[in-house]
Simulated scan of single mutants.
Amino acid sequence: MTEINVLVVEDEEAIREMLVMVLETAEMEVRAVADTQQALEELDKRIPDLIILDWMLPGMSGVEWARRIKKDDLFADIPIILLTARGEEEDKVRGFDVGVDDYLTKPFSPRELQARIKAILRRTGRLGKDGKLEIAGVTLDYNEHRVSVGGKSLEVSPTEYRLLEFFLTHPGKVYSRSQLLDQVWGRSTFIEERTVDVHIRRLRKILADHGLEDLVQTVRGFGYRFSEQTT
């Protein structure tokens, strides 16, 4: 895969070092700084493929800094993932309003961060042509639009592909049927929620041929999640 250049802006040293380790393990080139002034200096040296930005920073908040650089034509197209301990819905809206591309609430898993990064880079065309996403033995090849397990292709419909892609880029999280409809089918499409159940069953049946049906889990009273951890 073409090397991805990531700029990390995080003032807590322990978290900054953890991010560098996680991203370098994923074969990404990482530059890490502690505040927005240093971040601007790095931007002047080289424009990154993606910015991982903490909300609470000394001097200027990450949200305000994101707002400012998004107004600059040179930096406006750089994808941004916002990291924060805030979980309230209005705070997420504030982040998206300034132009950030995704939002991760601390604590988060390294695997989820890597998956989110690859999903954003794929959407923005910054992921290499040989870009692949692999979790729990399931591989998505974005170039060939193919799903495989152990090198063997799975016969999935376009909808099942999108559903599996969403699960792989949001591992461990529980989503209701309505949320899955919004994310996979689109908010402008009117489809009954039980349609989700039908595709979940089909996806499990496909994965069952490889002993992986337990990856797609039902969380009673809430919805579904994709996880290697059994309950």
Results as ranks from 00 to 15, higher is better:
G151R: 13
T195Q: 10
G151P: 14
L43D: 00
W185H: 03
V156T: 14
H210C: 03
H199G: 01
G186E: 03
E12T: 08
P110C: 05
A115N: 06
I15T: 12
E3H: 09
E192W: 03
S61H: 01
V174Q: 02
A14D: 04
S157Q: 04
E12Y: 07
A39H: 07
A119E: 08
L212I: 09
D54V: 05
R16Q: 13
E3S: 15
P158H: 04
V184M: 08
E155Q: 12
A119I: 00
P48V: 02
L113M: 13
L207T: 05
M21Q: 07
I206A: 13
A66P: 11
A14C: 04
D182N: 11
R204E: 11
P48A: 02
P171R: 03
I206T: 15
I80V: 15
D214P: 02
D197E: 03
E29R: 13
E24L: 02
M28W: 01
K173P: 00
R202A: 14
L23F: 09
G95C: 07
R122A: 00
Y224P: 02
S188R: 13
V196R: 09
A32Q: 04
E27S: 12
I78Y: 02
F75V: 06
R204A: 04
F222W: 05
F166C: 09
R187K: 11
E17T: 06
L164E: 07
L154T: 10
V33S: 00
R46M: 11
T230A: 12
I15V: 14
V98I: 10
I47D: 05
E10M: 01
R46L: 13
K205A: 14
G59Y: 06
L121N: 04
V6C: 12
Q183H: 10
Y224A: 04
D49N: 12
R162Q: 10
S178C: 04
T84Q: 03
I15P: 02
G151C: 10
Y161W: 10
V98Q: 04
I47W: 07
S176W: 03
D101H: 05
V198N: 08
Y142H: 06
T230P: 05
K45L: 14
D101K: 12
S109G: 12
G150F: 07
L74D: 06
F108H: 00
D209K: 15
T2S: 09
I80T: 09
L133S: 08
V8W: 00
E193S: 15
W55Y: 14
V20Q: 08
P48D: 02
E17K: 09
E192H: 09
R225W: 02
M18L: 11
R126G: 14
I52F: 07
H199S: 03
E89T: 15
T139P: 01
V9P: 10
E42C: 08
A136H: 14
P171I: 02
H145R: 14
